[in-house]
Simulated scan of single mutants.
Amino acid sequence: MTIALPRHVLATETESGLVLLDERGGRYWQLNGSGATALKLLLAGTSTQDTAEELTRGSAVGSDQAAADIAALLNALSQAGLVVVS
């Protein structure tokens, strides 16, 4: 699976995470630290499972729950036109 930002989406890091701006419509999404880390890892080519394992290191959350959360995040971002999943 490949994850990419469309040309019309800009990503900017913030103190608390990441902001995605859809330049076509002027809407933006703010991701918290975990969501930002997950998206950055996925954009860099890290697998969903490896991303889930990275997010759960030192956490009480299991990798199955993290993988489900990542899938939900990707689904929401894809439906909003903020990422392309292929």
Rank of each mutant, 00 (worst) to 15 (best):
M1N: 06
M1A: 05
T2K: 10
T2N: 07
I3Q: 07
A4Y: 10
A4V: 07
L5H: 02
L5M: 01
L5V: 12
P6A: 00
P6G: 02
R7W: 07
R7M: 08
R7G: 04
H8S: 00
H8T: 01
H8K: 12
V9Q: 00
V9N: 00
L10K: 01
L10S: 13
L10H: 07
A11S: 03
A11L: 00
A11D: 05
E13V: 02
E13G: 06
E13H: 08
T14E: 04
T14H: 05
E15V: 09
E15D: 11
S16Y: 09
G17N: 09
G17E: 04
G17M: 05
G17W: 13
G17Y: 08
L18Q: 08
V19P: 09
L20D: 01
L20W: 03
L20H: 01
L20K: 05
L21Q: 06
E23V: 12
E23R: 15
E23Y: 12
R24L: 12
R24E: 15
R24G: 10
G25A: 07
R27M: 14
R27L: 14
R27H: 13
Y28Q: 07
Y28I: 09
Y28D: 08
Y28G: 06
Y28E: 03
W29F: 10
Q30M: 13
Q30L: 06
L31S: 01
L31M: 06
L31G: 08
G33P: 06
G33E: 10
S34A: 13
G35Y: 01
G35F: 05
G35A: 09
A36V: 02
T37S: 14
A38R: 09
L39Q: 03
L39Y: 03
L39A: 04
L39H: 08
K40S: 05
L41K: 02
L41P: 05
L41W: 02
L42M: 08
L43Q: 05
A44Y: 03
G45T: 03
G45P: 02
S47R: 04
S47C: 10
S47P: 08
Q49W: 11
D50R: 07
D50T: 03
D50W: 07
T51N: 11
T51Y: 01
A52S: 05
A52G: 11
E53I: 11
E54K: 14
E54A: 15
L55N: 06
L55C: 08
G58Y: 02
G58M: 04
S59Y: 09
A60Y: 03
A60S: 14
V61E: 08
V61I: 08
G62V: 13
S63Q: 06
D64R: 13
D64L: 15
Q65T: 15
Q65S: 00
A66K: 06
A67T: 00
A68M: 13
D69H: 10
D69E: 09
D69I: 14
D69M: 15
I70C: 07
I70M: 13
I70D: 02
A71D: 12
A71K: 15
A71L: 11
A71F: 14
A72W: 10
A72R: 14
A72S: 10
L73M: 15
L73T: 04
L74P: 03
N75S: 10
N75F: 10
N75T: 10
N75A: 12
L77P: 00
L77G: 02
L77F: 02
L77V: 01
S78T: 08
S78L: 11
S78I: 06
Q79C: 00
Q79V: 10
Q79W: 12
Q79N: 06
Q79A: 04
A80W: 01
G81E: 00
V83R: 06
V84L: 07
V85S: 02
